[in-house]
Design a protein around this nucleic acid. Structure first.
Length: 429
RNA sequence: GCGGAUGUAGCUCAAUGGCAGAGCACCGCACUGUGGCUGCGGUGGUUGCGGGUUCGACCCCCGUCGUCCGCCCCA
């Protein structure tokens, strides 16, 4: 048992059962993305380290990425996120693309972190972006996409919510606190950690950072001001659009949302699970108006978010929103092999059914019918076909509907039509 | 990077320092042309790995690796 070579730390095996869930999730993502007119795209899984050095959070590329030299010594990175790739792809063809463009992607990413609940080293991520439009309404559309995904997967507004803030607004408000330049970053981290520390501890931490008691009180008032968004024209327009898009139940202002990545410049948003014992970020994004200029393109505004598959799957699991009847059956029809003499006739029958558009699995060798029926039952086949000496002699075929426990023997030529009829009925049940 | 748990059959787990077991799963038979149920039988183990203590270690100690849960960070 310990002779089996173990998998790489932080990776997951997708057995057909798990793969069915992943495909289900992918289809939900596709359905929602396409309903808003977004196009699917994909970039390389390998990128140079320089691509991330430009703007990603320092820690993301230095501490949390898989980086290795290729055979000629160049440093290659397993992509930890998609936005830099998107930005490069857009910059490369900036004059040929029709703006604004709406793109989405669902692919694998890697981060070299300590695996734990809701976090693996290899994960899938939904990325969706609207590039070439700077209006607050564009941000509202992204938030509507996120909310529509929650709705499509059965997540209610009391299970997941989208918290919204604006970097420019917060910068202006923080400026009023008259913080020293070197305190700004620390205060942003401070705000991020408010929910994780007890109020007194959090205050102590703030004073340690050199925030004066007076500044602290101002900061507190700022963070508790739920109406602060009214000070921002951007956010006023944003919330009006969210309302018109019909998703306001999922969206609310929260001055504490800052978001880690350095490249956000305007409105930021974060999907967060808010069930009783599950409170964590499930998706995050925002506006990044300087990013294209940073890689040498002409300035172009963008907004978008990412959602990892691991946490959202946990949440969907916990809220009972993953269907338990996902079809993992390899095929609805199984052809038995009665004996050595009928083996090739059975193979021919299977081939004939496949030519007629049916998915058919053949038992590989002759065996007791009981064993073959049991196998059919186990793999979830709906129909078993028997071709024994009796049938062969009459050029007939026996078809058994497993769920109905009924079977009949008909001319072989009528089999495809009959099978399709049975399967259509089964499907509608 | 830090802290806490944990590792026994394919899976889920038992076993005061004294014969390594159960349930499920798998295979066979009852049932040589028919699945789910039932009964009977069977396969399956270097107790993660390496040391130590002991007459004797799954059990206690040390180390190591893996996994899980927190912290950090984030999706």
């Amino acid at each position: 048992m310990n002779t089996i070579i173990s998998s790489v730390k932080g990776t997951r095996d997708f057995y057909p059962r798990e793969m069915a869930v992943r495909t289900w999730l992918y289809n939900k993502v596709r359905q929602v993305s396409e309903s808003f007119g977004y196009q699917e795209y994909e970039g390389p899984l390998l990128e140079t380290i320089e691509l991330y050095a430009a703007k990603s959070g320092e820690e993301l590329v230095k501490e949390q990425s898989f980086v290795f030299p290729d055979r000629s010594g160049n440093l290659i990175t397993l992509r930890p996120e998609l936005t830099p790739t998107l930005v490069r792809m857009v910059a490369q063809q900036q004059n040929q693309l029709t703006l604004p463009l709406r793109w989405w992607s669902f692919g694998p990413f890697w981060r070299y972190e300590r695996p734990q609940k809701g976090r693996t080293r290899e994960f899938f991520q939904w990325n969706i972006d609207l590039v070439g439009e700077a209006s607050p309404e564009a941000d509202a559309e992204m938030v509507a996409v996120m909310a529509s995904f929650y709705r499509a997967t059965g997540l209610a507004a009391d299970e997941v919510t989208i918290l919204v803030n604006n970097r420019r607004l917060m910068d202006a408000e923080l400026a009023k606190l008259a913080l020293a330049d070197d305190q700004r970053g620390a205060v942003i981290r401070l705000v991020d950690r408010r929910d994780k520390l007890a109020p007194e501890k959090w205050r102590d931490y703030a004073l340690e950072l050199g925030v004066s008691p007076q500044q602290f009180d101002q900061l507190l008032a700022l963070l508790d001001n739920q109406l602060l968004w009214q000070e921002s024209d951007e956010l006023v327009r944003f919330f009006n659009a969210v309302d018109a898009l019909g998703v306001s139940e999922y969206v609310r202002f929260d001055p504490q949302i800052i978001r880690g990545l350095d490249y956000y410049t305007g409105t930021v948003y974060e999907g967060r699970a808010i069930t009783k014992d599950f409170r964590r970020a499930v998706a995050g994004g925002g506006r990044y108006d300087n990013l294209l200029a940073d890689v040498g393109g002409d300035p172009l505004p963008g907004t978008g978010f990412a959602m990892g598959d691991v946490v959202i799957s946990l949440l969907l699991e916990e809220t009972g929103n993953i269907p338990d009847n996902l079809d993992t059956s390899p095929a609805p029809v199984l052809v038995t092999i009665f004996d050595e003499g009928s083996l090739l006739a059975s193979y021919k029958t299977a081939a004939d059914l496949r030519r007629n558009g049916l998915n058919v699995v053949c038992y590989p060798v002759p065996a007791k019918l009981g064993k073959q029926f049991k196998y059919a039952d186990r793999i979830g086949a709906k129909i078993v076909i028997v071709l024994g000496p009796d049938e062969l002699a009459q050029n007939q075929i026996t078809i058994k509907n497993l769920s109905q426990r009924e079977q009949f023997t008909i001319p072989r030529s009528e089999a495809p039509q009959m099978l399709r009829k049975i399967l259509d009925i089964e499907k509608s049940v």
